[in-house]
């Protein structure tokens, strides 16, 4: 294959776009996709402070590097989950990356806040991935607001977004369908949340990371076995393989025609939010879900410090009453 633009030998084949690029032209293509996302959805204005959530994976590190090259004012945020071996390896990749590129980094250690994920898994009777996601989103938003950042950026790519949209559609979850998209405006105690990589696939971010020498943390989370999104991604990969371009058409079609209809419904039925009595994060109950989780873990840790996983454990805090952004 040859590069569509300069006719040099291609390194990246993109059937979805019926094209191929050499590494230099792929870099230009990648940047233009990010710029297009930012421009079309007014994701960031120059001068705004952007907090970028960094897991250590290819997507978040790629996003950080690309936004810094576009001269946005970016700072990284890594949440150390406290999972043995896995978390220290991920954190080392993030710290090494930021040091190498001269980028600012904040780290939140969940163990210091009484909620290391192994304890959540041990003491709370609910899927750990759900609770972990909730806790991470809580800290992303909290650090953004407390640190004076106008924007919170995450590295969600097209595959992530399509898999999430598909899951939300399977459940006809009007709440999530009303606000899924590349930009959630700041409101009710939430920073503006953006996904500048939403037009790019996992393959494309992996190519970018490789071609830019980014060292990534690629080992799967030891607690994530059987996550449903992985199955949905597999299904969509088959669809994309047989009909290139299906993913972006599905997602763009939703943004254009689906989301506005669900947003109208949610405006009429959305719950009122108020600051959490403990941490100030937005919640529809007195204490937010993460503060209630922290209390539950602390109580059960004190009552039975050596307890093992038990399917018959007592009930757990209801996190669903909190907004999830």
């Amino acid at each position: 294959m040859i590069c569509r633009k300069c006719k040099a030998p291609a390194e990246v084949s993109l059937p979805s776009h019926n094209t191929a690029f050499c590494r230099d032209c792929f870099a230009i293509y990648f940047t233009r996709q990010v710029e297009k996302a930012i421009r079309h959805h007014a994701l960031i204005k120059y001068g705004e402070r952007v907090l970028v959530a960094l897991s250590g994976g290819k997507d978040s590190l790629t996003l950080m590097l690309e936004l810094s090259r576009l001269e946005y004012d970016v700072t990284g945020l890594h949440v150390d989950l406290g999972i043995p071996v896995s978390s220290s390896a991920a954190r080392a990749k993030v710290e090494g990356f930021c040091e190498r590129h001269g980028l600012k980094l904040n780290v939140v250690e969940l163990a210091k806040h009484g909620l290391p994920i192994p304890d959540v898994k041990k003491y709370i009777n609910r899927p750990v991935c759900s609770a972990c996601g909730k806790i991470k989103r809580h800290w992303f938003n909290r650090v953004a607001l407390e640190g004076g950042f106008q924007v919170l950026a995450t590295g969600h790519n097209l595959d992530d977004e399509v898999a999430r949209l598909f899951a939300n559609t399977l459940r006809w979850d009007a709440g999530y369908l009303s606000d899924q998209g590349p930009c959630l405006e700041a409101e009710s105690g939430f920073a503006r949340k953006i996904k500048p990589l939403y037009r790019l696939t996992e393959f494309e971010t992996a190519c970018y990371a490789f071609l830019n020498g980014i060292e990534i943390h690629s080992a799967p989370c030891p607690y994530s076995g059987g996550a449903s999104f992985t199955g949905h991604k597999e299904l969509w990969a088959n669809l994309e393989y047989t009909s290139p371009g299906t993913k972006i058409a599905f997602y763009d079609g939703f943004l254009l025609r689906g989301r506005p209809a669900f947003a109208h419904v949610e405006q009429q039925s959305g719950a009122a939010l108020a600051p959490c009595e403990s941490c100030g994060s937005p919640t529809s109950t007195g204490l937010c879900g993460v503060c209630r989780l922290g209390i539950a873990v602390a109580e059960r840790r004190a009552a039975a410090p050596d307890r093992q996983s038990d399917p018959d454990r007592q009930s757990t805090p209801d996190l669903q009453s909190d907004p999830d952004r």
Partner: peptide, 30 residues
Amino acid sequence: LIIRGGRLLTPDSRLNDGDEIRIRKVMSTG
């Protein structure tokens, strides 16, 4: 990603005897 000697290969790239190929799966699993 299909990698040979620091370069990415496209599907039509020819493989040669003695090649060392690195295959890096891209689907993140959580």
